[in-house]
Amino acid sequence: MTTDNTSPQEPHDGEYLKPLLPILDQHSTRRTLLKTAGAALGLAAFGEALSPLMVIPENVSVDEFLQQHYKELTDEDKKKVFARLEAETKERFGADVTITDSKPIPGVRFAYAINVSKCNGNGKCMEACNKENNHHRGVDQSYIRVLEMTKGSMDMENGSTTYDHTVPQDDKFYLPVQCQQCDNPPCVSACPIEATWKEDDGIVVVDYNWCIGCRYCEAACPYHARRFNWELPEIPAEEVNPNQGYLSNRIRPQGAMEKCHFCLHRTREGRAPACQEACPTGARVFGDLNDPDSAINYVLKNKRVFVLKEELGTKPSFFYFFD
């Protein structure tokens, strides 16, 4: 290929140094002037069109913009970040809150189980989740969806989440679904920027300040466990839960993804998750998979247990069982 350099068609030295054509030099001052004016006008119009973007510098401080990934924050950084977030919550929601950073308890691995024979679909768990986790009140958001299923079928096609009658119906059973805290989480694989990851105690968390909101994880999740903040949540000041975790229930920013985190601000302090405490039927069992005497291990050993969509290989830490 290098032989081309010496090919006869090669132009002479001087020739290629000259600009190619006479038409280049045809300057029409008027045309140039018009074009410049047009370009200026276009740029101004573009600036005007994008002017709503000015809310970004209003709402996003420089510190927030430059904030690093959760795993890269030092304790000192976290202190500053949490203080900033607390101040912002006070400013925007009028509530005094404390943001903490509960760490996984060494040696503990959380799992959840639901007794399908007991659950009657009353939905108290959703309500508790909504309140505990500072969910958007406008859409009654929660991390849980309870499916009313037809007896004799495990096909969700025969299920409904919008039932509104006395429960339990005789021909129905109820299947609450929330994040299954998979051991092989498709959402974590999907995320392009490691904004979501699995912690040592098995909880899959989201750094709400790192997520760019591409929603690939939401497409990847087989359990409809993820929720996107389509707008800034609205919560009356008096309803804000002041006990907040950075990776859990602090009020989420607009445009970020969120999901069930097993109430880690409670469970990592040894307390039961809010949905479990709220359940009036006692269908919910929560505990440490690594403790042989835990309630969850009793269920796994003594009950007939299944997981949802086991064929997908997601390895949920969330189990269902029958009495």
Binding site: N120, N122, G123, K124, M126, E127, D140, S142, H165, T166
Partner: peptide
Amino acid sequence: KMQPTFKPK
């Protein structure tokens, strides 16, 4: 029996 009070909207 119970009446559900909280539904996703």
